[in-house]
Structures are given as structure tokens and as C-alpha cells.
Amino acid sequence: MPIITYIQNDGTEHQVSLPMGATLMEGAVQNDVKGIVAECGGSCMCATCHVYIDEQFLDLLPEMEEEEAEMLEGASAEIKPNSRLGCQVRVSPKLDGIIVRIPEKQ
């Protein structure tokens, strides 16, 4: 199972191994990583699962769909080129070792 490292805004790190197909949001919420709210439970409806992806891995991620891009615009924290909605990124073997940073607010 791919290992994901989440870094909270306060610097706390969590290493979590996620089953294939789980989303970065699920991995964070279910494992008590602080700072992801995910009000809508992964329906791409709330933009409270905003994360910053390690630049190195950016190209390996599935492309952003239009609705994700639109929701992301409404996220509370600064939107950066490496911003994604955690619920729209599914874990694949390619993502083993990825570092995911949590923004200061959702």
C-alpha cells in the first residue's frame, strides 16, 4: 500500500499507508490528520479538503476536472499551483512516498 506523508500546518507529520483507490482526503480524515474538514464527504461540493501536493509528484496526479478547479477557486486558504482537493485525488502505486501539506485554514 502506498505510503503518504501528511504535514499539518503546525508541522506535525503523519505517515499513513493507504489502500489503493482511497483518496488523499479519506486518508487524512480517517487517520486524524488535523486541518482537513471534508464537510461534504468527498462529493467535490465543499472545498474544505484543500491540500498542497509535493511539486515532484504533481505531474503524476490525475488531471484536474473542471468541477474540481471551480470548487478550488472558492477554497479559504491561498490557492497555489500545487493546490488540489484531497477528495479528488485517488491513491495509486505511483504516489508512494508523496508528501501532502495541509493549508492553514479550510
Binding site: 489502500p19 483507490g21 482511497a22 483518496t23 479519506e26 480524515v29 480517517q30 487517520n31 486524524d32 461534504c40 464527504g41 468527498g42 462529493s43
Partner: peptide, 25 residues
């Protein structure tokens, strides 16, 4: 509950993926 009438019954979301938290939480 919301995914029950959406992703879960569509077969796109598993039982694991709709949990609020993992057991060790």
C-alpha cells in the same frame, strides 16, 4: 449516509471509503 444514494450504490465508493474515521481514531 449521503454517499449511500450516490457513490456507494453506483458502485464507485466502497464501505471503507464512506467511514467517518478509521477504527484507531
Amino acid at each position: 449516509k449521503p454517499p449511500l444514494s450516490k457513490g456507494y450504490l453506483q458502485g464507485k465508493q466502497s464501505e471503507e471509503s464512506i467511514l467517518f474515521r478509521s477504527a484507531n481514531y
